[in-house]
Design a protein around this nucleic acid. Structure first.
Lengths: 215, 215
DNA sequence: GTATAAAGTTACCGATCGGTAACGCTCAAG
DNA sequence: CTTGAGCGTTACCGATCGGTAACTTTATAC
């Protein structure tokens, strides 16, 4: 009985602390099965430990949830910045790159839509520590999309930015109800975004006409 | 001790049976607080009765949830048909009417987005009796939007239909995270839909250009 | 008035929930 | 070698969950 754990859990970074294992496991389970559907017992045992170790690392389940949401937000902006960086100075290209990357990511089988939107559905209590994180994150997404629309020279940047956001959020929202990744509605989000950009960016009119004429 | 109940619950249709009261109360609570957040005890007592009467009318909570989803779907198509009927024969007008009515409804303070999408987030278990209802409902929404796009003469009807669906679903999804009804992103869904229609309906090109020129 | 169905009432079940107490082991730093 | 942090283990708590048994009361129909 020298070694009790024949690393039963998927690829764990070397030297990963118990807290990190719990955290990673919790994010995975919350995302795949829902926050309310996963108890702390399930998280702990799936992470190869037990409830006591859980509560040595986290004050409560609610606090863990909030921390998961913060991590989700950080990763999201990291993703956002990575996707847009190659097109610095070209706001339209940045928007199109966001939609392309979003489609690519959302189409993956493991995708269950937007973790933060899903959390918004499950955490209706405004006193939940994760509530404010959700609101602020979505407000920032909106702000950035509107800013991109303005930078691209849109006549009505706020309308364009909001419409783009609806396409993005719609992509995430429909992900759970259309499991065939290759024919889901979200595959058309990029096309929709392009049409919106053509409609709202003054210099894009002729380009759109040309493309339509060629098709 | 002649009368125990001084009608403590909001406007109840005369002669409403206990089962109907429970059902109406459950739909309301599920929608406002979430399905998993509401127990059968809470439903029963909020409906002015108790758990035993609940289980005399419903086989289980899961079956009640499924029945709520079926009712939600019925009401949705009733709404849809009512909104589109005045514009029979004019698919584009029907689409625009759907977006206008959707915005009007979603902007109401009591709105918590799409009950069926919210259920999809909470009921991840594919064995739940409500799961199939959700999938079929969304598939039908998609089918109808694509059909409307085709009837309107869109070059790529499936893409237009799907893009419109993303706008609609995005409107619902963002409802929970933007509580200011008058400035929420969903207020721009109609404008986005119009731009998409202009882009995909061949005869609409000049109309859009004229509108943009006049603006 | 009586039969019958609908609904209220109390008490209970096993399971699970989030969360805690107390103890023992291991391993690395000093 | 000692100390202490980190972690595993077992047992437990009160609350709530979905669901049921058995009995009583009320209202309706004939």
């Amino acid at each position: 009985m020298s070694q009790h754990k024949p690393p039963p859990h998927d690829a764990a970074p070397a030297g990963e602390r118990v807290r990190d294992r719990i955290f990673r496991t919790a994010r995975e389970l919350f995302y795949r099965q829902g926050i309310r559907a996963v108890g702390v017992d399930a998280i702990a045992s799936e992470a190869g430990t037990n409830k006591m170790s859980f509560y040595r690392s986290f004050a409560s389940k609610d606090e863990l949830v909030a921390e998961c949401l913060r991590a989700q937000e950080d990763e999201y902006w990291l993703w956002w910045n990575t996707v847009t960086a190659p097109h610095a100075g070209d706001p339209r290209a940045q928007i199109e790159a966001l939609f392309a990357a979003n489609a690519e990511r959302s189409r993956r089988i493991e995708s269950c839509g937007c973790a933060i939107n899903n959390a918004a559905v499950e955490l209706r209590d405004e006193m939940h520590p994760g509530h404010i994180i959700i609101l602020e994150h979505k407000a920032e997404v909106r702000r950035r999309l509107r800013a991109l629309a303005a930078a691209a020279g849109a006549e009505d940047a706020d309308t364009l930015g909001d419409a783009l956001m609806l396409l993005l959020e719609g992509s995430a929202a429909t992900r759970l109800t259309f499991d065939d990744c290759d024919s889901a509605p979200l595959c058309k989000a990029s096309a929709g975004a392009r049409a919106l950009l053509d409609a709202y960016l003054p210099a894009a009119g002729e380009r759109a006409a040309k493309r339509r004429g060629a098709a």
